[in-house]
């Protein structure tokens, strides 16, 4: 059984088809990278799994997206409940204009956790997992906006994992960061793999090569190739993949 799976998934933005008949499965406790040129649908596909595309008007979806074998687009799935079990990290760090502590505690408040001691503990654990605790433990009350870009992104990761989701979706989490911060995020992804199933969208092919177990290459809304990362980067079976990873287009 796959952790995440899509079956014949199609998506339209108004009349424009952005995803074409995508079927693939992601195993638990692995890192899967989605690569491809801009506008190929990789982010859109990622956002299907926590139904973030629901927020965009005129989006139409057919087919299935499954998590633990449950179709999340079926009628009896509560989208808000569903999103609570999935963490998401976005391209640009987007901490709330609140304190560091409140940022990490946000999800806990949303799931209805009221116990101060449990929240304190979860905040600390999440910040430690996100490798940020040592830098902020004395300034939890300070505004999150005072942190550097790299720290903000790690804070966003802490915020996402504080509620202990089983899946972490990352939409180009390091694209707005400097190389040192990027290295930290990548190390973090490697460590988080033990507890989470991670899907990461990236523009950076070296990054995909470094962090992922499996890689999916998208082009013009289609899934061209999906295989072990080592195979994709050394011996891809499709010519388009070969051309993309060698930098001939994209």
């Amino acid at each position: 059984m796959y952790k995440l799976e899509s079956k014949n998934l199609n998506l339209w933005y108004g009349p424009k088809q952005a995803l074409k008949d995508i079927s693939m499965g992601v195993d638990a406790n692995t890192v899967t990278a989605f690569i491809g040129p801009s506008g190929c649908g990789k982010s859109t596909f990622l956002r299907c799994f926590n139904r973030m595309n629901d927020l965009i008007p005129n989006v139409r979806i057919t087919g299935q997206a499954l998590i633990d074998n449950i179709n999340i687009y079926s009628r009896n799935v509560d989208v808000y409940e569903h999103r609570k079990s999935i963490g998401m990290v976005f391209q640009k760090p987007n901490p709330f204009p609140k304190s560091i502590y409140e940022n990490v505690a946000y999800g806990l408040h949303i799931i209805g956790e009221n116990s101060k001691s449990i929240i304190d503990e979860s905040v600390e654990t999440a910040l430690k997992q996100a490798a940020l605790w040592n830098e902020v433990k004395d300034s939890l009350k300070k505004s999150a906006l005072a942190l550097s870009g790299g720290q903000q992104q790690r804070l966003c990761i802490a915020r996402a994992i504080a509620v202990k989701p089983s899946i972490l979706l990352m939409d180009e989490p390091a694209s707005a960061l400097d190389p040192l911060s990027t290295a930290k995020i990548e190390e973090l992804i490697y460590n988080l793999k033990k507890e989470y199933s991670i899907v990461i969208v990236t523009h950076n092919m070296q990054q995909a090569g470094r962090v992922s177990d499996k890689t999916a290459f998208f082009y013009l809304g289609e899934l061209i190739e999906y295989d072990n990362t080592s195979k994709i980067f050394t011996n891809p079976s499709k010519e388009a993949t070969q051309n993309y990873i060698t930098g001939r287009f994209g």
Binding site: N50, M52, L55, Y80, E81, H82, R83, K84, S85, I86, G87, M88, F90, K92, N94, P95, F96, P97, Y106, G107, I110, I111, C156, R159, A160, V163
Partner: peptide
């Protein structure tokens, strides 16, 4: 992006 962050956590 702030709204998305909140919705992503399952907030209504």
């Amino acid at each position: 992006s702030l709204r998305e962050a909140s919705f992503g956590m399952g907030a209504t």
